[in-house]
Simulated scan of single mutants.
Amino acid sequence: MDFALTDEQRMLEETLTRLVADQVSPEQRRTLLNAAGTETSALWRTFAELGILHMPFSEDVGGLGGDGTDLMIIMQALGRGLVPEPYLAGVLLPGKLLALTASSTQQQRWLTPLLEGEHQLALAWQEHHARYDAFAVSTQAIQRNGQWLLTGRKDVVMNLKAAATTLVTARVESGKLGLFIVPAGTAGSTMHHYRTMDDQSAGDLTLENVTLALDNCLSEDVSNALSEVLAIGRAALCAEAIGAMETACDQTLAYIKERKQFGLPLAAFQALQHRMVDMHLHLEQSRSMAILAATSLTLPPHERDYKIAAAKAYCGESARFIAEQAIQLHGAMGMTDECYVSNYAKHLVMFDHYLGDSDYHLETVSERLEVA
């Protein structure tokens, strides 16, 4: 199979790599993190102007029709620079669900300004008892007097603070899984905001008899669309992890070449050379799995989910391994914020938990093997 990029894809990669290098230095990243949730950043507006926000969406909804490879290029570049902007949580996941389920009026209201960079959204699908199972949902939605009433709680909602509206999954009276638009500030909804270990903005959303108009329901059976969107998100995460692992490996190699012990660079010691080789082996094997995930998005759902689960599980284990090795080879300073590799290590550890950890996805793989 030919994995060579097209001229347009190489141009996308070069443009985004330069942009991230220019605008996401360690100091600039701290500024972006401190400003998160207050207003749209200049970098986000640049993403919109360059079509980065439009790229993964079909032309039917105003996108550029990018495929899995285009998405992989974008996410790798964001991972290399440890870009804190919520591309996955604020655009890709909720935007894809809108594209699959929303009416033209709903898309015009929420999706079009999303792709133009005018606002961000969030997707609330996790619940505290469910352990990454998007369909183990206790949040309830019932119709009363021509309105919807939502009651329940969603945990670890990424980008909740900055979202103009949140897409919420809830069990409807038919027993199927519905999807609802809950704008920020809706009466009966309360939010608890915090940051994850890798400084990403998240929050818990509590709904107590939240009243919504009937047209705030995007779907009364969103299961297939949600499965597709989560698969896209997991493939995107694998690509982002590759970018972060690349930079963690590069920074670690540069450090052991510079740092001296007993009058010699650390890189001169064979034991440390072996550890660097192991890091690169994990990186390259993960890269192959990320390519598998990106190229599996158009497969039938059962095969798609199996291959992406395998990729997410392997990349999660590799991400933890590279994070641990990077910290150990840097020594005690690798634990400090001043040593920038620590930020990559925290992100790589948390990567394993976003959209399901290695254990969760290994269960999916093992179930498929048992059936086979």
Rank of each mutant, 00 (worst) to 15 (best):
L348H: 07
M333S: 14
V349C: 02
L355Q: 03
G334S: 01
F351G: 04
A345L: 06
C339M: 12
D357Q: 05
K346I: 00
V349G: 06
M335F: 14
S342I: 08
Y354V: 15
L348P: 02
F351K: 04
Y344V: 02
S358P: 04
A332E: 03
H361V: 09
C339I: 09
V341K: 13
H330P: 01
H347D: 05
G331N: 06
A345T: 02
H347T: 06
S342H: 15
H353K: 15
H330Q: 03
S342D: 09
T336C: 15
S358G: 01
M335V: 05
N343C: 04
H361I: 11
N343T: 13
M335P: 02
A345I: 05
D357A: 09
V349M: 10
E338Y: 05
V341Y: 07
A332I: 02
L329D: 07
H361R: 14
G331V: 00
G356M: 09
E338I: 01
N343K: 08
E338H: 14
G356L: 10
D359A: 15
M333A: 15
Y354W: 12
D352C: 10
A332R: 11
D357I: 00
L348M: 13
H353F: 15
Y344S: 01
H353I: 02
L329F: 04
M350N: 09
L348Y: 04
M350D: 06
L329R: 09
C339G: 08
Y360P: 07
L355K: 04
V349P: 01
H330W: 11
G356K: 05
C339H: 13
Y360I: 00
A345N: 00
K346P: 02
G334M: 03
M335E: 10
L348W: 02
D359K: 14
L355R: 02
Y360R: 03
S342E: 10
D359H: 15
S342F: 12
G334L: 00
H330G: 06
G356A: 06
E338S: 08
N343M: 01
S342V: 12
D352L: 02
H330V: 00
Y344I: 01
K346D: 11
Y354G: 06
D337M: 09
D337L: 05
D357P: 03
D352R: 10
D352W: 06
G334Y: 04
M335T: 08
H347V: 01
L348F: 03
C339D: 13
M335N: 11
Y340N: 10
Y344R: 04
N343G: 08
F351W: 05
T336A: 12
L348K: 01
H361A: 12
M333D: 15
V341N: 14
E338N: 12
S358R: 11
H330E: 02
M335H: 12
Y340E: 09
M350Q: 09
F351D: 00
S358E: 14
G356I: 08
D352Q: 13
F351R: 03
D352T: 03
T336Y: 11
L329T: 02
L329M: 10
Y340P: 08
A332T: 13
D337F: 08
D352A: 04
H353Q: 11
